[in-house]
Every structure is written in C-alpha cells, then in structure tokens.
C-alpha cells in the first residue's frame, strides 16, 4: 500500500510531528487523485496547508466554521472523494461533534480526521484549547476508528494506512513539536494492532501518543534501579482495541497501568479496563491521565510532569502498582 512513498527519508528530527503528516499527505495526494483536504483557518497550524499549496483545487479552507466543514466533508465523501480534515481536536470533537457523528459516522463515510493540539499539547493556551475529552467522545461513535500515533513517523504510517481503511478515522496528534520515538517507519504498523515496543514480564504499561516514548525510558530505568521487567505496549489504536494484547498482558504480567494525555474517563484506560473486567482475571490496575478537572495552564512538559505522564511520573506510578495487592493465584480457573 505504501509503495512509492518516500517520506521515511525525511529527517524526522527536523520536521515536527504535524509537518511529517503534511508531507505524507502530499505524496498520497499524488497517488490518490480522490483525496481532498479541508481546514478551518488552521491550515498552517495543522500543516495541512502543505497539501493545499500543492493541490489548491482540491483544498478548501472553510474559515472558522467547523460544523460547516464537517458537513462539507460529508458531502465530498458522498460524492466519491476521500476528505482529510484537519483542525484542533477541541473544535472537532466538541464544536462539530454532531456533524462528525450524524453526517459522517452514521452514514459510515470515508472521512479522515487529523485532530491536532489534542490533550494538553497546547498547554499554554488553557482549557479552551486543551482537549482531554475527545477519545471518550470519538470512541462512542459507531463506525469510528480512533488512532493516537506515538510520533511523527507513526502519524505518517496512520495517515497512509487510513486511505485504504474504509470508513471514518480519527487520528489524534499533539501540537507537532513532540520528539520522535521511532527511527523509521518499518515496524509493521497496522490499524487495530498494538506494538510491543519493549518486552517485559512483571508489569505492562499500556500507552498511546506522547506517553509511549516516556514509558520506554521509564521501563529502562525501572530495570536498572528496581530490577523490574517492564512491558510497554504502544496501543495506538483505541478503537477497535487490540484486546488480545491486553489479555496477554493480564495473563503474563498481571499488573497493568495505562498512560494517556486525556482524562481518565472513557479514554484508553477505560477501554483497557473494560477488557480486564470482562476477562474475569485478577489484575492490579491503574489508569493515569488527567483527573476529573480542567487541566492546568503551562508548557506541555510541565503538565506531563504534573499529571504523571513523563518518565519520572511513570516510574512513580509503576512502583505504586507493583506494591498493589490482588488475588495471587496461579490457578486461573478459580478466578472465573
């Protein structure tokens, strides 16, 4: 599917996460003449302007009108095109929630949404521009696929994969300045299939987005300092969730923590908790993210530290969960 794409040669350190997807979209636009782009006066901030500059006749900047933008996207999709729509997560998932749900998801339309500035990535802007609710909202829409890539490389992979993934896809990224995690794109990315980025047997850290890189760093330090064998899963697809990977983590490590730049209600943590609860197995578990509050103002790195989503926070939470008690019983049948 990605044959002919050369974006992996881009120096990911020089390109921000958002810029990588802009380049990928341009290359896809050359191969898929039915791709169109839309933004709502955030073409430059979201980097979809790269596509717009290259294909002006296939790009629509609708101004600051997100509801109209998603209605137009639905119409474009109904006419046989594949719209890629990019603006800030808060204005997609809340201002235009009904258009995304009723115009796009209800009709199972082929609209790909790239939601930027998600979570607390635009920390300085305050809660109006934070978006710690979008995973909860988007995963509740039937037909919607929800993906949170770990970095710019993975964003490129998701954008490329989404073209041939039928139906609506919500791709959630940060502001674009986040450091990269992957060195190249060839690690077998597949929508709906998590990536075990570090093996481990004592505890599993299930992560998405910016927390993947932090968790791998934390896992190395926990090995060195505590002698712990820590598994890290990049659970990039929140819906459909890779339930098999969660079940394996329950059975093989029996301790799980989720880390997400989202509130702890109905995001990654809740999706994982559903699987754990239904499994009938005993498992020490904790969800880490933004608690039931409007997130503080600050630079993202300070917020990640405050909400225990950086390396130090992840180490602290892992140690807590290692001390948690649960029914230690090797005979699984007893627990069902």
């Amino acid at each position: 599917m990605r044959e002919g794409l050369t974006w992996t040669v881009y120096d990911a350190d020089a390109l921000t996460l958002a810029e990588v997807y802009g380049e990928v979209l341009c290359q896809l636009g050359e191969r898929y003449l039915n791709i169109v782009g839309l933004s709502a006066d955030l073409a430059k901030s979201t980097k979809i302007s790269k596509f717009g500059d290259k294909f002006p006749e296939r790009f629509f900047n609708v101004g600051i009108a997100e509801q109209n933008m998603f209605g137009i996207a639905a119409g474009l999709a109904k006419s046989g095109l594949i719209p890629f729509v990019s603006t800030m997560a808060a204005f997609i998932s809340m201002r235009a929630a009904e258009q995304v749900r009723t115009d796009i998801c209800y009709q199972n339309l082929n609209v790909k949404i790239i939601a930027t500035h998600a979570g607390t990535a635009f920390g300085q802007a305050g809660s109006t521009h934070h978006c710690t609710e979008d995973l909860a909202i988007m995963r509740s829409f039937a037909n919607m696929t929800v993906v949170v890539p770990a970095d710019g490389i993975e964003t490129g992979n998701v954008v490329a994969a989404s073209v041939e993934h039928p139906g609506p896809v919500y791709i959630r990224i940060g502001r674009g300045f986040e450091p990269t995690f992957y060195e190249n794109a060839d690690y077998g990315f597949q929508i709906g299939k998590s990536v075990e980025v570090k093996e481990g047997a004592d505890i599993t850290l299930i992560c998405c987005g910016i927390t993947v890189r932090q968790a791998v760093e934390a896992a190395k330090l926990l090995q060195e300092q505590d002698g712990l064998s820590v598994r890290v899963l990049n659970m990039h697809t929140i819906k459909p969730l890779d339930e098999d990977a969660v079940l394996r983590a329950i059975e093989e490590t029996r301790r799980i923590i989720t880390f997400e730049d989202h509130n702890i209600y109905c995001g990654l943590g809740s999706a994982v908790a559903d699987v754990i609860a239904a499994s009938g197995k005993g498992c020490a578990f904790s969800k880490v993210g933004i608690p039931d509050c409007y997130s503080l103002v600050g630079y993202p790195e300070d917020l990640y530290s405050h909400y225990k989503l950086d390396t130090d926070g992840i180490i602290e939470k892992a140690r807590e969960v290692m001390g948690k008690e649960f029914e230690e019983d090797e005979d699984w049948e007893d627990e069902i």
Binding site: N34, F70, A74, G75, K78, T102, D103
Partner: peptide
C-alpha cells in the same frame, strides 16, 4: 442520497456534494 433529520445539516452537506462534483468535473 443523504441521511437527514437533525436540522441545519443539509446545506453544508449539499455544498460538499456540489464541490465534489466540481473537483471531479462531473
């Protein structure tokens, strides 16, 4: 052609359909 019912949705979708025809020279 389009599921409707929630009000205020039809005109944006129609604009999208019309632009879709234009992009594809239909």
């Amino acid at each position: 052609d389009v599921s409707t019912g929630s009000l205020g949705h039809g005109l944006p979708i129609s604009v999208g359909l019309a632009l879709g025809a234009r992009v594809q020279k239909k």
